[in-house]
Amino acid sequence: MEKQDGGHNVKHGTAVTDSHGLTRRTVLMSLAAFGVAVAGGLAAAPGTAHGQALGQNESVEEALKRLFGGKTIKDGSAAIKLDVPLIAENGAVVPVSVTVDSPMTPASWVKHIYVVADKNRIPVVTRVTLAPEAGRAFMGANIRLGESGDVRAIVEQSDGTLLQVKREVKVTVGGCGG
């Protein structure tokens, strides 16, 4: 790929020299700089890709900071309905559903719904990206809960407002009733 780029650019470079009076030296130097930048970008890419993975081993505070960068999150209990069981007998499968009161029109819709389980080692469970065509801001999923703790739903609206609700779920791992 690099080789091909080089060949293309050199050819292009001569054309530029002719028409705009750039010297061959400046063209080559800028090409070299470009090459270094590309190589650097390639080397850094795996690191950043890993750094931006959604699910990471971190605390909730870190996760929220990473996702929302310290933006204030308002209380959204009036608009968001978070449906989780109060007691989950089996932490491996916990049904969660989130419904947000939103018109879902191209002018105002719910862009993202995040589900975050505070006590999980990987707190971010899912990020749902919705389009106005969804008709209603709704999502449902089966999640895992490591232990009893808060489950929160954070909603990002199309204008950037963040709303959240949280509910505590008690998890009975391997209880006799299971």
């Binding site: 699910g55 749902v128 990206t129 969804a134 709704f138 999923a141 895992r144």
Partner: peptide, 21 residues
Amino acid sequence: VATFDTTQSVAENPFFSFTFK
């Protein structure tokens, strides 16, 4: 219509529900 980005905190044999118009 919808995209779910999920992590390992989602249960085995995952179930998702969503709406569309």
